[in-house]
Simulated scan of single mutants.
Amino acid sequence: MSAIVLALPLAGVATASESQASGDGQYCSWLVGPAPADGGVSPVLANECSDVSPEDAQERMRTAASQGSTAARTALVDVPIMYWYEHTDFNNMGGAKGEFTTIFGSAGPCDGAGYRVEPTYWWKHNLSSIIGGSNCDFARLTNIALNSSQEFGIAGYYARYLGGFHDNVGLTQPHA
């Protein structure tokens, strides 16, 4: 994986909140399926973490995906759609040790519909900055209470601070 950690330029299906808890490793990689048409959350097809590196977390996720459901085995796991950072300014421009998760989309790059990814309980309370990848230039963030949402540009440095959604993200919907 060529993780953009600030250079910028499991078998089965579970929701993110069921499949990952805090403390699984500093670096995580999730593989999510496309959002269902009914407005539901994208299924998490594989999810692995590592304290070694983002690349190690991705390799673990690939292994889990290759042993998982048919959807996970046939996924395009090289399509990163979002990078989540625990601290503002993308973990203080790499200067702060913090959690880092790469979200991969199984159906390829973002389109108009995109994906709907529910953060784990820990990420809901600690997500502070986001970078989009693979044509995911925007994201609609919904707060934890699910009663307020806002559109953010997530390409480049635009989502370095999430304002009222800082440590208050109940749902992310990255899209083109």
Rank of each mutant, 00 (worst) to 15 (best):
M82V: 10
G163V: 06
A11S: 11
S29G: 07
V13S: 11
Q20W: 14
D111C: 06
E118K: 14
R73L: 05
H175T: 12
D111A: 03
G39F: 11
L6P: 08
A14I: 02
M93A: 14
S29R: 00
L127R: 03
S148T: 10
P43M: 03
P174W: 02
I81E: 04
D56A: 14
A7K: 04
P54M: 06
D167K: 12
G98V: 07
T101I: 03
N135S: 14
G33D: 11
C110K: 02
W84Q: 08
T172Y: 04
T88Q: 05
S2C: 07
G23D: 09
L10A: 15
G33W: 05
Q26Y: 13
L8E: 05
N126D: 14
H166G: 04
G98R: 06
A14N: 08
A37K: 01
S148R: 12
Y158N: 09
G25F: 12
N92H: 08
E59L: 13
A96V: 10
Q67R: 15
G112N: 08
M93Q: 13
Q67N: 15
L31C: 09
N92M: 10
V5L: 11
G68A: 06
M82S: 01
S17E: 10
F100W: 08
L45N: 09
D56P: 10
S22D: 12
V52D: 15
V79A: 01
L141E: 06
Y158V: 08
Q67V: 13
A176G: 15
D51R: 09
Y158W: 09
A96K: 08
R60V: 11
V41E: 15
G163H: 05
G68Q: 00
F152N: 04
S53W: 09
G132W: 02
N147F: 02
N91T: 00
I4C: 04
I4Q: 13
F138C: 15
T70S: 15
T15D: 06
G108H: 07
S29T: 08
N91Y: 00
M1G: 11
S148Q: 14
P109H: 01
Q67H: 15
E18A: 05
D137F: 07
G108M: 11
G156V: 01
W122M: 07
N47Y: 04
G25K: 10
P9G: 14
P174G: 02
A139S: 12
A7M: 11
Y85A: 07
L76W: 03
N143S: 07
F100D: 09
V79M: 01
M93V: 06
Q173M: 08
